[in-house]
């Protein structure tokens, strides 16, 4: 399901485009209606004005359903947390249960793909690709 909020939405689009091609994993069908969605990718800042809408949309999705918090804003408020802020929900996990967090500002498309892999690992218990060894 498309739930593009801010900057991260562009990277989310990039993920489905030719170079990264999320379709390889059969996940390219971004349904516009929440009724037909399995996964909500919250890509961007959640403001207090947006929060009720987000919760409604989540509740409209049929279970089993999952949520990926994409980007620092969705995880914790990211760069927009400061003393006296008045319009920000500091983390989407305050509103809906989150399965996978993908950090970055914005995360690279590879990051989102890795998030999907993680989600798959969580559901099926098996990992599709070996985890790359860190080079350092």
């Amino acid at each position: 399901m498309t739930f593009g909020l801010a900057c991260c939405a562009i990277e989310m689009m990039c993920t489905s485009m030719a170079r990264f091609d999320i379709a390889r994993f059969g996940a390219e069908v971004f349904r516009p209606s929440p009724r037909q969605a399995d996964l909500m990718i919250v890509s961007g800042t959640v403001t207090k004005k947006m929060a009720p809408t987000l919760v409604t949309l989540y509740e409209q999705m049929p279970s089993p359903k999952w949520v990926i918090a994409m980007g620092n804003c969705a995880i914790s408020g990211g760069p927009f947390v400061f003393e006296g802020q008045y319009n920000l929900v500091e983390g989407v996990d305050l509103l809906v249960p989150v399965d996978v967090y993908v950090p970055g500002c914005p995360p690279r498309p590879e990051g989102l793909l890795e998030g999907l892999m993680k989600l798959e690992e969580k559901i099926t218990g098996t990992r599709r690709f070996p985890v790359p060894e860190p080079k350092w």
Partner: peptide, 13 residues
């Protein structure tokens, strides 16, 4: 769709 759009389409499953 994939091939028209210069990508591969489903291939993992």
């Amino acid at each position: 769709a994939g091939h028209i759009q210069r990508r591969i389409g489903p291939k993992e499953v």
